[in-house]
């Protein structure tokens, strides 16, 4: 990671945001995926980024995660401008991303998944080995601390439900010292109950002082845990609300495109009438 330009901290904010995008744009050839996107994410808050399909959510995640560096604008972490060369750089800076369905290896056990890539080791030389007993114990207690009740840390992750799998990935990111946790559509493939389970872990992570970025197209889920709401539409940030400034109805209406929804309701009424 290297500084691209000297950042001038805003005088109005006493503490710099954990992660901040300032006028960020990203183009792929002649396709403009993101245009002038500004986003502030604070520690101990859940920042929701809402957007429909094609709004630029994926590009935004990948920009934050260090996969795609921005083509314009500034990306700051704790007030310092950064340029990440790879997701590993972002991870080293404390920015962990949990991708939907791409977070765990189904055939591997819960504890192996929990420590994958950062296995605790003991012993010397050729006897240097994974500290299996400690890994299992830590996985069990850490998952319990997040309120995740895994029956057996030896069971393959594939035997867990979708919500539990997300939870294992979140608990892992929290344990390995993530300061910023980016969640990519964590509830989109889940049922109502399972979504509730995952949102509970999101709230847990916030209580631990982590800056959570929740990317979703579901305003109901976002409103349950969100402190700050950004609306992404066709590559631009169109709304920037704190929790006090918005109601669930407004959020839903904004997501669905307000006036468009009214028109749709009217048309559907027309179809129903004989």
């Amino acid at each position: 990671m290297s500084a691209t330009e000297s950042g001038t901290p805003e005088p109005t904010t006493p503490e710099p945001a954990a992660v901040e995008l300032d006028g960020v744009g990203r183009t792929f050839g002649n396709v403009i995926a993101l245009r002038d996107v500004s986003l502030r994410v604070r520690a101990g808050e859940v920042t929701c980024v809402l957007g429909d399909n094609g709004a630029g959510k994926s590009t935004l995640i990948k920009t934050l995660a260090g996969v795609h560096p921005p083509t314009s604008g500034t990306y700051r972490v704790a007030g310092e401008p950064v340029t990440f060369g790879s997701p590993r750089d972002a991870l080293a800076a404390g920015i962990a991303t949990v991708y939907q369905d791409l977070a765990t290896v189904p055939l591997m056990s819960v504890w192996r998944n929990f420590f994958l890539g950062s296995e605790p080791r003991k012993g010397w030389g050729p006897w240097r080995r994974i500290d299996v007993a400690r890994a299992k114990e830590v996985a069990r207690t850490e998952l319990a601390a997040m309120g995740i009740d895994v029956r057996d840390v030896d069971q393959p992750v594939g035997t867990l439900s979708g919500g539990e799998r997300q939870a294992v990935a979140i608990a892992r990111a929290v344990y390995f010292g993530a300061k910023v946790l980016i969640l990519d559509e964590p509830t989109s493939a889940l049922g109502v109950k399972q979504s509730g389970v995952v949102l509970k872990y999101v709230a847990q992570a916030r209580e631990r002082g982590i800056a959570v970025v929740l990317i979703t197209h579901n305003p109901h889920h976002a409103f349950l845990v969100g402190d700050h709401f950004f609306l992404l539409n066709r590559g631009r940030m169109t709304q920037d609300w704190t929790r006090e400034q918005v109601t669930l109805d407004e959020l839903v209406a904004a997501m669905a495109g307000g006036a468009e929804l009214d028109t749709l309701a009217h048309e559907l009424e027309g179809i129903r009438r004989p």
């Binding site: 997701p87 590993r88 991870l91 991303t97 991708y99 791409l102 977070a103 765990t104 290896v105 189904p106 055939l107 591997m108 192996r112 420590f115 994958l116 890539g117 950062s118 296995e119 994974i130 892992r172």
Partner: peptide, 18 residues
């Protein structure tokens, strides 16, 4: 562990730094 991970799900493995 890494062997099992790259065979099980290469993308997930890469995402966690394997």
């Amino acid at each position: 562990s890494w062997v099992q991970a790259v065979g099980g799900d290469q993308v997930a493995a890469r995402n966690v730094g394997v």
